[in-house]
Simulated scan of single mutants.
Amino acid sequence: MSDDVIDDVVVVGGGVIGLTTALTLAERGLRVRVWSRDPAAGTTSAVAGALWWPYRIEPAEQVGGWSLESLRVYEKLAADPVGTGVRIVAGVHADTTLAELGDWAREVSGLRQLTAAQVPGPHGTGLAARLPLIDMPVHLAWLRGRVEAAGGVVEQRTVTGFAEAARSARVVVDCAGFGARDLVPDAGLRPVRGQLVLVENPGIEEWFTAADGASSETTYFFPQPGRLILGGTAQEGDERLEPDPATAAAIVARCARIRPEIAGARVLGHRVGLRPARAGGVRLDAEPLPSGGRLVHNYGHGGAGVTVAWGCARRAADLACG
């Protein structure tokens, strides 16, 4: 181990996974430093919708537990929506039944099966729910503030290899998201492109989703303070970061079939992010570093990083401290 080690942990990655993990570690009394290539507003996490729901994430046998741990945290944070960015909001998951969900669904209060007549648009069934809906720019700023209040440091810094971080800390935690494809390297990581349209909210108070896991097109809208977020896409292997005008028009049209007033809403902007999907699902494990330290991996959360952030952070912290 190098003599110039100054921290207990360096967390590589400053999105929701990285900051939540850093906060969990700092609150356990460790000296934590976050190295993030991008400012929080420039991360994939900042683009997210972000509704709590296990979506496009594996392994199924562990996702439920991670998700429920995170749900309990968000339910508490919703007591201060202005500060934390977390609100509990009602909405509908179309084309979803209770029977097709995992055991975790029994622990989500208020999930209720709907008939076709109760689901807007051309959908045969759906679920009513009240779930955490997170304003990500606000939440990421809150996470950073909590990390710093706990004595952690957040730096904008590009990392070219984990050995660089290992010279500064005994433990390195890899929360690099899609960036782990090159850092690890991990050829099993693949981008799943998501494109969103932000519009003025014409008075919609409930969220709506209709997401076919086998399709590259989804339909959803999330009312966030000052805007309505429309989605979306799930384009595997597509690394384009520029918004596509035709895709944006199609997103608006799909959402307007559910709520016609969306068609005339003024467009405020467009967002594109690459979800870090991974063959085999989330990687959450530890390995020794040549320096004598430990490298903990916490990446590959696909489209549900927000949903599992706290559960995965606690497992990563256990590995870092073990």
Score class of each variant (00 low, 15 high):
residue 201 N to E: 11
residue 174 D to G: 04
residue 171 V to P: 00
residue 125 T to N: 09
residue 125 T to P: 01
residue 209 T to E: 08
residue 159 V to H: 08
residue 166 A to S: 06
residue 180 A to N: 07
residue 217 E to H: 13
residue 117 A to C: 08
residue 207 W to D: 00
residue 143 L to N: 04
residue 177 G to L: 03
residue 211 A to G: 07
residue 114 L to K: 06
residue 177 G to Y: 01
residue 213 G to V: 12
residue 213 G to Q: 11
residue 96 T to Q: 15
residue 185 P to A: 00
residue 113 Q to H: 08
residue 189 L to I: 02
residue 162 F to N: 01
residue 158 T to K: 14
residue 201 N to Q: 12
residue 197 V to M: 07
residue 156 Q to D: 03
residue 87 R to E: 15
residue 89 V to S: 11
residue 130 R to E: 12
residue 173 V to W: 00
residue 202 P to K: 07
residue 116 A to W: 09
residue 197 V to L: 04
residue 192 V to I: 11
residue 139 H to P: 03
residue 130 R to Q: 13
residue 122 P to Y: 06
residue 126 G to Q: 00
residue 139 H to M: 06
residue 100 E to H: 09
residue 135 D to I: 03
residue 156 Q to Y: 04
residue 96 T to F: 12
residue 157 R to P: 00
residue 186 D to E: 12
residue 218 T to Q: 14
residue 148 E to Y: 08
residue 157 R to F: 00
residue 124 G to E: 12
residue 221 F to G: 02
residue 192 V to F: 05
residue 90 A to D: 15
residue 143 L to Q: 04
residue 203 G to T: 08
residue 119 V to S: 00
residue 101 L to S: 10
residue 107 E to W: 14
residue 129 A to S: 08
residue 128 A to H: 09
residue 146 R to N: 01
residue 96 T to A: 15
residue 183 L to V: 01
residue 135 D to C: 10
residue 173 V to E: 03
residue 190 R to T: 11
residue 176 A to F: 02
residue 114 L to F: 04
residue 116 A to E: 13
residue 151 G to S: 09
residue 162 F to D: 01
residue 141 A to I: 08
residue 107 E to L: 14
residue 214 A to T: 15
residue 97 T to H: 14
residue 94 A to D: 10
residue 147 V to L: 15
residue 130 R to M: 08
residue 132 P to G: 09
residue 103 D to P: 05
residue 209 T to R: 12
residue 123 H to K: 05
